[in-house]
Design a binder for these strands. Structure first.
Lengths: 210, 210
DNA sequence: TTTAACCTTGACCATATGGTCAGGAAGCGA
DNA sequence: TCGCTTCCTGACCATATGGTCAAGGTTAAA
């Protein structure tokens, strides 16, 4: 028995194990897809017997749903930078930084999200139609305001948002391809910095905000 | 070419059925992922008994591999516009148009590709390391040449290419999300035109080529 | 110590799935 | 028509997987 396990027994065993399982599940779902993932694999990765997973999460679907929801929360948070910014340069610049950082720190989550949406969002369709739709409409209005104020060129706000999502998430979802094209090496700190700078430069100049 | 293949070209049955199966497989793999796809589902969609699929494609993996290869061919073709163009505006503009058109006409293929790469490219890793790496290096050199000639701003060519891939493919891979945010309706002709224009405008201005 | 709630897990089950195969049908040149 | 190849398919099999369960262990408050 390890030190960590002993301590956890005093306190929140459930919390500890659920977090452990969710982390393992996120990775396995990302790497194998929902259909390719197996509870056994997740269990092994979490270091628990399979039956124990079903004690905390009744079904594979329930576990998957929790993983997706967790990611969605993180993504919404990244959007905070959009508010309370004087103009597009600060808002969009910070948003790109935040999303790039998430692609770097949570590549598995990004992939699970991408997979979920690609397959028709069977689990989080309601989120798309409520939370995401509202968020998008709000930011689109904000962008339109900046356009009206002459702070940036007249660009369709929705397509700009799509471009922001696409470019930033690409570094997580297609990370393997990028790594391969980078000689089989993950991007270095320097290269991540360059990536962020490139994306920000092109987009901010592209919308006429620089 | 083997004896079997040559003879089979006489009759169109093989060709016809293989195409039928490949089309069904592309759709099912895109919508369910490799793990979630079943030979039965593909068979039903192709209107053939399951055993017949195995007559033409020995294993699920072989069928999947063919689907992925098919897509890769289409993508390479879209890159032709990059060559024989006087400068970045024509080359990149045409490339964006071509890739957007592929996202519109072959959304399933795009999703299968995305899924394959997201899961670590188990099937087409060799393509990434040879064909794609060479193609990318060549275009990066071309972009660098344009920069040296003052035809565009100094941008890291690789990150520019990633952005081109990300933005164009997003319209296929995240088509469901876009459709949801579009009030549940697929993009109209008008909206696709606006999408292309937005992407081209932002990127071409973003790289200082306009 | 007792007790009740919580946690753990090996063994088991029903089902779904990839793949096989034998036997027969259809196409086609001679 | 004959003979050969190609094509078709229902029935079947071995295996993997999600999920269940009952028995037992652990914890902490009373």
């Amino acid at each position: 028995m390890t030190e960590v396990e002993r301590i956890s027994k005093r306190g929140a065993i459930r919390q500890e194990n659920e977090a452990r399982i969710l982390a393992a599940a996120e990775k396995v779902f990302a790497e194998a897809g929902f259909g390719g993932a197996t509870m056994q694999l997740i269990a092994d990765m979490a270091g628990l017997p399979k039956a124990n997973l079903h004690y905390y999460f009744a079904t594979k679907e329930e576990l998957y749903r929790k993983v997706v929801q967790q990611i969605f929360e993180i993504w919404l948070h990244a959007a905070d930078s959009f508010d309370n910014a004087p103009g597009p340069v600060e808002a969009i610049g910070a948003y790109i930084d935040a999303k790039m950082e998430i692609s770097r720190r949570h590549p598995f989550g990004s992939k699970v999200w991408a997979s979920e949406v690609m397959h028709g969002a069977p689990v989080i369709q309601d989120y798309l139609e409520t939370t995401l739709r509202d968020w998008t409409a709000g930011r689109a209005r904000l962008i339109q305001k900046w356009i009206d104020e002459g702070k940036m060129a007249p660009i369709d706000p929705n397509h700009l948002l799509y471009m922001l999502w696409a470019t930033t998430q690409h570094y997580a979802d297609f990370g393997h391809q990028i790594e391969t094209l980078n000689g089989g090496m993950p991007l270095s700190d320097q290269q991540w910095k360059a990536a962020k700078a490139s994306v920000k430069t092109i987009i901010l100049r592209g919308i006429g905000a620089l």
